[in-house]
Design a protein around this nucleic acid. Sequence first.
DNA 1: TAGTGGTCTAGACCACAGA
DNA 2: CTGTGGTCTAGACCACTAG
Lengths: 233, 233
Amino acid sequence: MNSLEQQSWQSVHDEVLRRIHTREWKPGDLIPKEVELAEQLGCARATVNRALRELASEGFLDRRRKAGTRVAAHPVRRAKLDIPVIRLEIEGRGQKYAYGLLFSERRTPPPEICANLGVTAESDMLHITSLHLADGKPFMFEDRWVSIAATPTILDADLEKISANEWLVLHAPYTRGDIYFSAVNASAAEAKVLRTDPGTSLFLMERTTWENQTGITSARLLFAPGYRKHSAI
Amino acid sequence: MNSLEQQSWQSVHDEVLRRIHTREWKPGDLIPKEVELAEQLGCARATVNRALRELASEGFLDRRRKAGTRVAAHPVRRAKLDIPVIRLEIEGRGQKYAYGLLFSERRTPPPEICANLGVTAESDMLHITSLHLADGKPFMFEDRWVSIAATPTILDADLEKISANEWLVLHAPYTRGDIYFSAVNASAAEAKVLRTDPGTSLFLMERTTWENQTGITSARLLFAPGYRKHSAI
DNA sequence: TAGTGGTCTAGACCACAGA
DNA sequence: CTGTGGTCTAGACCACTAG
């Protein structure tokens, strides 16, 4: 299988993946060291390194100094999940986006928000609820708390025109975020806003983001019935 | 901000990220080219390249030959979602894993499975339903179709002992997969299996995987009430 | 067609963890 | 200690694409 032609790190990547898929190298097996592979495949070690590094980050390989590189025993595959601004997600479906601010209030947060963001109950926060629509139909209901200490300029934003979701993406980059996906039965109020029936199963996304150690915002995003979030591996 | 000390690609990564976060470089801005940055930061271009490449894959930068590198206008953040074997997910929570095969049958697939996998209605497939338990309680109900043409050896697997989920991970590596997350109301049958009430909102994960162009398996994973899938950015 | 990122190389040194 | 991966470098050529 050796070749004398010019190789790229992707060729190496694919070749190694092929050997894993054909079970030439089985889960748990030790594979040749970088120098050997480079020789076998006729390329520089750096090239092999790049390929193996990618494969490790994709979950196919376990690499440890001195111990060498092994085929992962339990390939924990890592899916990629794009988190775009809601507007772009809707427009990406070829639908018309609209947005309405339902409610905005400056106040101290309830206990669960304090717990999420790690702030005190006396924090100065903005509480915003809004509705995002696709082709005129309710698409997602957003219930968000924003720390004013962390992003004071949000008070100047016109949240009638730009959603908090989008404003934050543009003005408050975060360093770290948590997302939880789950399913809940619609409450009476939620059903009314999303124009569905109470008890209907709804897809819920809860996001909290931080800038370093400072909590910025915590949001509860409730999607209209039928929503499916896609991800690829 | 320049320094004479030894730099690593991570320092460059962090420094660029800092400039983005402090809005020294704003969304849409063109940033210095690799050679210039390398000079400024006192390292080799390859080092800068590695840093910027990572930042681009994280969604912070847009890079195009000749056009240069820009701060992403709409940072589509890419969350990492680990897709482990169910057993490991449960054991990772410190709970005891158990598994029961409910049903197994060799037959031709229904239309929706054909559509998912891109196979014909006459395909030879294995249809398996099973229940995964955590600490003795129903955790996830799995309804899976496996292409026998793609993975003939699954007929030799003892699916009473090892779940199809785990067997496939070990024996049928895939090159590509789709995942859809959604929320559904429990049917009467589903409620009974998961020991909950009909209509309860359940988290649903639908996965289809391919080896190159060949469909391997399509599964419907229905989680017990209260399940939350976590992801981090 | 010229400018920018994408990649490759050969060699070097370092850092970590096995034995 | 020693072997392995992790990273850096300087230089080179290539590939894509904006102007």
